[in-house]
Each structure stands twice: as structure tokens, then as C-alpha cells.
């Protein structure tokens, strides 16, 4: 237990860094994902096709490979990213790839009649998307979005591999220094579980509120 007390401070600090990354990268990924889904659905062959292949790339390549290409691979060509930038870029790129699919499914879930009604009222495509389609799509895809954000949180564990000092990184250091990995990893596990439980709770309360009209 001694080792837990010794390392609790840095583990909590590392946890905070994971939370910050998850929040920032999720917000950016969702914004890009919404745009990407619209581009995929309405962008025509070139834009739609490019986004299709981007999603395939993100989905098809192992996360660790993507991260290593970005951090180590690019430095060979003189692009040196610090761990924080690489972490954010990768998490946003990865999350956006998944968010495109989540948003696309949500948008396609909105009934054709909604488009017709909006068009007949003279609303242009941008306003129709912003005021009619996206809000309804958002409700339909909230469960999937919650899953996506939990996934983003869990992806932060990989970042210790590029030297980003998150909770996993601190636990590794502690495990190496004290030769008592067990208790430290248990603390990390508890932190992750608590955080993902919080995300789920926020998600389900948003679902309840958003579904008030249903």
C-alpha cells in the first residue's frame, strides 16, 4: 500500500492529463466528424470518396501503428512533433474517422420527409442541416457517441509509448522503480473505470434530456 500512497499524486495528475486530452480531442473530432459525414453524404464523388478512404485507413490500421507513423515515422522526414502535439493530432484524426461513421448513420436515420418539409419552406441546405437534420441525428447517435468518447479515453493509454506523461506512463515508471506493478496498475484501472463511468452517466443523462420530444 505504501507504493500506492507514494504514487497516488502523480497517477491522479496523469489521469487529469488523460481527461484533458480526451475532452479536447473529442470536441475537435466530433466537429470534424460532422463535417466529414456531410462531405461523405453530399460532397460528390471526389470529396465523398476521399473521406470514404480516410475512414477506411483509420479503421483498418492498428492504432499503435498510426501513432508510431505519426510520431516516429514523420521525424525521419524532418517533421518532429512533441508528444503532446502528436497525441492530440492522432486522437483527433482517429476519433474523427469514427465520428464520420457515427454521424453518417445518424444523418441517414432522419426521415426523408424532414428534408422535404425544410426544402418546401425555403430553408437552404446549410440551415436545414444545422437546425433540422443534425439536432435529430445527434439524438439518434448519442449512444454511439458515448462509446466513441470512452474509446478516446482508453486510447490515451497508448500515448505513454511516445513519452506523453499520462497516468499509464506514471504507472510504468512506478512499476519499474518499485518492482510492485500490481497495486499501481489496479489504481490506474480504477481511475479509468471511474472516468468511463462518468462519461457514460453524462451520455445517458443527455440522452434522457434530448429524447424529451420523442
Amino acid at each position: 500500500m505504501h507504493v500506492v500512497i507514494l504514487y497516488l499524486g502523480v497517477l491522479l495528475q496523469g489521469g487529469m492529463r488523460d481527461v484533458e486530452l480526451t475532452v479536447v480531442s473529442s470536441i475537435l473530432a466530433l466537429m470534424l466528424g460532422a463535417l466529414g459525414a456531410i462531405g461523405r453524404l453530399y460532397g460528390g464523388r471526389i470529396i465523398g470518396g476521399a473521406i470514404y478512404w480516410y475512414v477506411e485507413l483509420i479503421r483498418g490500421l492498428p492504432p499503435i501503428l498510426q501513432l508510431f507513423v505519426l510520431f516516429f515515422g514523420l521525424s525521419q522526414f524532418g517533421i518532429d512533433l512533441n508528444p503532446l502535439s502528436a497525441a492530440i493530432i492522432w486522437l483527433v484524426a482517429y476519433g474523427a474517422g469514427y465520428a464520420v461513421e457515427v454521424f453518417r448513420a445518424g444523418i441517414m436515420d432522419v426521415a426523408e420527409g424532414q428534408h422535404e418539409a425544410a426544402t418546401a419552406l425555403g430553408l437552404d441546405r446549410k440551415i436545414t442541416m444545422r437546425k433540422i437534420i443534425i439536432p435529430q441525428a445527434f439524438v439518434a447517435m448519442l449512444p454511439n457517441l458515448t462509446t466513441l468518447i470512452v474509446l478516446q479515453l482508453k486510447n490515451t493509454t497508448l500515448l505513454y509509448l511516445i513519452g506523453y506523461a499520462d497516468m499509464m506512463y506514471q504507472a510504468r515508471l512506478g512499476a519499474d522503480a518499485t518492482a510492485q506493478p500490481g497495486p499501481l496498475y489496479v489504481v490506474v484501472a480504477i481511475e479509468y473505470l471511474v472516468l468511463s463511468a462518468i462519461i457514460s452517466r453524462i451520455g445517458s443523462s443527455m440522452e434522457k434530456r434530448a429524447a424529451a420530444y420523442r
Binding site: G113, Q114, E116, A117, P135, Q136, Y213
Partner: peptide, 14 residues
Amino acid sequence: SVGMVFQTFNLFPH
């Protein structure tokens, strides 16, 4: 200048 009313109402549910 042309308004339309649909069989399925198509009100915006949200």
C-alpha cells in the same frame, strides 16, 4: 411563394 402540406405532416419533432 409556394407552401406545402404533407400527408405525414413532417413537423420537426425536436
